[in-house]
C-alpha cells in the first residue's frame, strides 16, 4: 500500500510586520511546516507502523528552501519525498487551488497512491480546498475534515469520522483510493527522533520540474488576482474587573446577562 502525504511550508508572520504591495514583506516571514500537515504525516506514519508493506511518500510544492521542512516529514518516518518546483512557478505571483490541484494530480498519476492525506487547510493562504479539488481531478473518493480514521486495507475501505459545523460529527466509509483531508487533533504528532533526523539526511527528496510531470508553464496561470492586502481596523473593547473573586464573578455574570448569554 502506498500513502501520499501532501505537505506545505507555510509562512508565519511576526507580530510586527509591514505590507509591501499585495504581500507581506519577506523580512517579516518565517517558514515552518503547516500545522495540519504535521497531523497528516503522523497519520501516514502510524498507518505504516501498524500495517505491513506500507510506503509513505511525502510531496511538497516549493523552492529548495522547503527541503528543510519536508526533511522533517522524513525524520518523522516518511520513506521518501518528492519536491515539485520550476522556474515558471518561482515567477508566479501565487499558486491558486487549481494550479496546486494540477501539480499534485500529476504527482498522483506518477505515484499511484492508494491513499492521499492532506491537511484540511494551509495556515497562510487558507484556501482549504486543495485536498478535495485534487480528489475531484484524479477521480478519487474523498472525505474532508477527518478527525478519526480506521483503515481496512484488505477491504480497501477507510472508515472516517468527520467534523461538521456546530459540533456535529459524521461517520462515513470511503472506498480507496481516496483523498482525506486531516483535521488537527486526529492524533498526537511525535517529535522527530535524533536517529530519524539522521536517517532523513540520507532519504531521497526527488526534485520534479513541470517537464518531469508532463505539464506546461501555463499550469501556474491563475484566474485569481490579489488586488489588495491590508490590515483590518481592529477595535479593542476590554472590560477589566477589579475586586475579590466574589465581586469579579458577580460583575462577569452581569455582563453575560446583559449580553443575553445567561438567563
Amino acid at each position: 500500500m502506498k500513502v501520499l502525504v501532501t505537505v506545505k511550508e507555510v509562512a508565519a508572520v511576526e507580530d510586527e510586520f509591514e505590507i509591501d504591495g499585495t504581500a507581506i514583506d519577506e523580512a517579516y516571514l518565517e517558514y515552518d511546516l503547516n500545522e495540519w500537515d504535521d497531523y497528516a504525516i503522523e497519520e501516514g506514519v502510524q498507518i505504516s507502523e501498524s500495517e505491513d508493506d506500507v510506503e509513505v511518500v511525502s510531496v511538497t510544492i516549493g523552492p529548495e528552501r522547503s527541503e528543510e521542512t519536508i526533511r522533517m516529514a522524513l525524520a518523522k518516518g516518511a520513506d521518501r519525498a518528492v519536491r515539485v518546483w520550476d522556474d515558471s512557478l518561482e515567477d508566479a505571483e501565487m499558486l491558486d487551488v487549481e494550479a496546486k490541484t494540477n501539480l499534485l494530480a500529476a504527482v498522483v498519476e506518477e505515484e499511484e497512491p492508494d491513499l492521499v492525506l492532506s491537511g484540511v487547510q494551509a495556515d497562510d493562504d487558507g484556501f482549504g480546498a486543495t485536498g478535495v479539488s485534487l480528489a475531484d481531478e484524479v477521480g478519487f473518493e474523498w472525505a474532508a475534515v477527518v478527525n478519526d480514521l480506521e483503515l481496512d486495507v484488505e477491504g480497501g475501505v477507510a472508515s472516517v469520522r468527520r467534523e461538521l459545523e456546530g459540533g456535529v460529527e459524521e461517520l462515513t466509509d470511503v472506498d480507496l483510493p481516496a483523498v482525506l483531508t486531516i483535521q488537527t487533533g486526529i492524533n498526537e504528532p511525535r517529535y522527530a527522533s535524533l536517529r530519524g533526523i539522521r536517517q532523513a539526511q540520507r532519504k531521497e527528496i526527488k526534485p520534479m520540474t513541470l517537464d518531469d510531470l508532463g505539464l506546461s508553464a501555463d499550469v501556474a496561470e491563475s484566474d485569481l488576482e490579489i488586488v489588495d492586502m491590508y490590515e483590518p481596523e481592529t477595535e479593542s473593547d476590554a472590560t477589566l474587573f477589579e475586586g475579590s473573586p466574589d465581586e469579579t464573578a458577580g460583575q462577569l455574570a452581569e455582563v453575560l446577562r446583559d449580553g443575553g448569554v445567561g438567563q
Partner: peptide, 14 residues
C-alpha cells in the same frame, strides 16, 4: 550542518 540544525530545532521545540 543541516542535521545539527534539525536537531536543534526539534529539541528547542520540545
Amino acid at each position: 550542518t543541516s542535521e545539527q540544525e534539525a536537531v536543534r530545532d526539534v529539541v528547542r521545540e520540545f
